[in-house]
Design a binder for these strands. Sequence first.
DNA 1: CTGTGATAAGTTATGGTTAACATGTTACCG
DNA 2: CGGTAACATGTTAACCATAACTTATCACAG
Lengths: 336, 336
Amino acid sequence: MSTIGDVAKRAGVSAMTVSRVINNSGYISQETRERVEQAIAELGYVPNALARSLRFKQTKTLALVLTDITNPFFTTIARGVEDTASEQGFSVIFCNTDESKDDESEYLNVLVQKQVDGVLLVPAASSPASVAFLHERGVPFVVLDRRIPGVSVDTVRCDTDQGAYQLVCHLLDLGHRRIAILSGPAAVTTAADRVSGYRRALAEAGIREEAVYYGGFTVEGGYQMARQALAVTPRPTALFAANNFIAIGALRALHEAGLRVPEDMSVVAFDDLPPAFVIAPFLTVVGQPAYDMGCQATLLLLDRLAGKGDGEPQEIILPTELIVRRSSAPPCDPTP
Amino acid sequence: MSTIGDVAKRAGVSAMTVSRVINNSGYISQETRERVEQAIAELGYVPNALARSLRFKQTKTLALVLTDITNPFFTTIARGVEDTASEQGFSVIFCNTDESKDDESEYLNVLVQKQVDGVLLVPAASSPASVAFLHERGVPFVVLDRRIPGVSVDTVRCDTDQGAYQLVCHLLDLGHRRIAILSGPAAVTTAADRVSGYRRALAEAGIREEAVYYGGFTVEGGYQMARQALAVTPRPTALFAANNFIAIGALRALHEAGLRVPEDMSVVAFDDLPPAFVIAPFLTVVGQPAYDMGCQATLLLLDRLAGKGDGEPQEIILPTELIVRRSSAPPCDPTP
DNA sequence: CTGTGATAAGTTATGGTTAACATGTTACCG
DNA sequence: CGGTAACATGTTAACCATAACTTATCACAG
């Protein structure tokens, strides 16, 4: 790999002159410019962004730290982030934490070392450790999708409490009274908030019975929780899955138990599956504007980098959308 | 952000001594080490990887350039890449080209500027331009999933010709004679190779009629191609979708046309959908070991970085696996 | 013909880290 | 007590690009 010095030597000028040609700054005679440009072409010279960044203290790189890159919800966020960032000349480094707090802090450490200009963080845990780490080192960041209780930071997320409330109200309207919620890890705010929306809806309807399960935001977690829920007598008439993977796990358990949806059991879920993965959409869901979440979070972060805004932490809460499909219906008969 | 100099000042030593503490090199008295470590902790000092990389000409960063990050096939590859890379202390930058040649070359330019140590490339086009660009600049790379005709480079891919052959043979065994292939962009080798496997199987069975469609590797592409295929008289009795998204588009078109699978039409596809997205697997497919492809490609690349191997370009071809499910059955009646 | 401003280049210093070399101290051996 | 290892720390230069400053030439006005 050739350096600016090699180009300079070949063109018979100083490195500074080459720099001026590259950056179109200062005065350059037409003749010199051509000689330099030819040397650049001949050597296939590409400026070293490391050296540039070292001087300018700017890497034009953001990082997106998320918990599960195989989940289309997050992939969609990622696209929003990438599209917005690259429009403004920023690259994005993706990091997958698998919901592990340790992986998260290790990644953050590497990212700070690599001098990323800013971080978009879907925190694996509700602890303020990661946020404090970034704050202490002066790295701008935006928290995505989840809350971190007790600290006031820039956040972009959905109103998941309200979304859960809508879904449960929909089930109540259909006549369901025994509704189980299959939620995510209790320590994750989105899981907790969905439970709280669920409770609020039940309370308003004057229903005391609740059935709350916590597990992983995974197919396996959904499968296990559904089996537990089905073992209770009397059996619930509806299941509320707190994300798309949990829903798939639950549907698998129902299939195995020979229960039809929605005839024997209604199922509703948080997070839609992207249309690309589904032949004929079937699940009643509350969809989140994932792509838009990615865009907005990136815009907010880029604003911070540019020193815009009054410095007050901003919380952008996007609305969810209830999409009623065929997986929810009135309860049929109150068996077992 | 504090520098090694700040730490040195605070600990009352030189920068070099701090460097020695960090890297555990040379001689350091216990007392000094403690003073330095305390200063590091107090300042929250994190070494600047930019400066380090500039000196060592090593960024410990790889890039994965692929064509569609929303496709679970590529997401799975990405996980294989990330897991393998991070095990060896390498970070990965993901770039999504959307099958655009221009986006691809722009990304490669940025990546070379950022001095990535190596590139894993799923080429958007069969042209050798990108490969030549990297080669000229001395950046090690491995081509993933696709071939680039006419050049000899390190490659990790599947035997897609053979996989297509297997799928079509499976359909022939079931008794199908009119089989249409819905393939990807003609310029992409995986699309072309699948067509060639299809032709080989038909030729061996002595069948002259073929129905080849080219389109995007997308749901929309699959939908359009399926509609074209269905408009032909007599209608094919089986469709062969060249990837998972095409299959979903085709199934949607069949659903719309009121045709049942497999009763009225058999459907087989390349690429399995990850179990996490499917409630009850249904499609007969040829699966590719995507995760393993990512791992092997990364290992090969890391070997190259370490100067291992005899320098001869290596082509690793992984086997595909035929998984027969319910979407393929003997042809029913030769309607229209 | 002196002074001034535009044009066209080069020189120096900077950014953070560390290898190589240089310097200084202590301890132990003969 | 001189010599020499082992230990402990500091100084310099290099990695590459570029801002700020400096030098040099030329044209033209006064």
